[in-house]
């Protein structure tokens, strides 16, 4: 059962990813990105990481991609003025390199042993919450600073006049 679900959601994720990367219109890419993110969230659930799946949907799909869509619509490049994609040497080589990377990672992945078994309760609310507020408290606090910085930065950068 688990295998089926894994393969299904995995396929959706991969296909969505490919579509993200290959669409001409950014709008289409954004929509496919949402699809991919949902699939990934499903995969999280499959590993008993409910909390994380929820956060994925709320934050990633719900906020980040929405932001993307806002900006796409704000910039509003008309279709005929979208950049033309040509296949230069660098691009082709890049694709090939990425392929090699995937293959290497695959081989490596097979060698690193992890015990099979039922999923430990790692991504649940209790687990994440406990870890976050005890062992990783510092990271948690610093993240808040990071977010503050991001907010200020975004506002400062996007203003018309300083």
């Amino acid at each position: 059962m688990e295998t089926v679900l894994f393969v299904l959601f995995g396929a959706i994720a991969v296909c969505g990813a490919i579509m993200v990367v290959t669409r001409k219109s950014p709008m289409a890419s954004a929509l496919y990105l949402i699809l991919t993110l949902f699939a990934v969230a499903a995969l999280f659930v499959l590993r008993q990481a409910h909390f994380l799946a929820a956060v994925q949907v709320i934050v990633y799909a719900g906020a980040v991609v929405v932001l993307f869509v806002f900006v796409i619509m704000l910039i509003n490049v008309p279709e005929d003025r979208l950049p033309v994609e040509r296949a230069t040497t660098t691009r082709v080589l890049g694709v090939i390199a990425a392929g090699i990377l995937i293959l290497e990672s695959a081989v490596l992945a097979r060698r690193y042993w992890m015990p099979k078994g039922p999923a430990a309760e790692v991504g649940t609310v209790e687990a994440v919450g406990r870890a976050l507020f005890t062992d990783y408290l510092l990271a948690f606090e610093i993240t808040s600073v990071l977010l503050l910085a991001a907010v200020i930065g975004a506002i400062a950068l996007a203003k018309r006049k300083i």
Partner: peptide, 16 residues
């Protein structure tokens, strides 16, 4: 790895 790789392709190969 596959997802990562596809992302990389997007970064390297797209102009937008």
């Amino acid at each position: 790895a596959i997802l990562f790789g596809i992302g990389v392709v997007g970064v390297v190969a797209r102009k937008n």
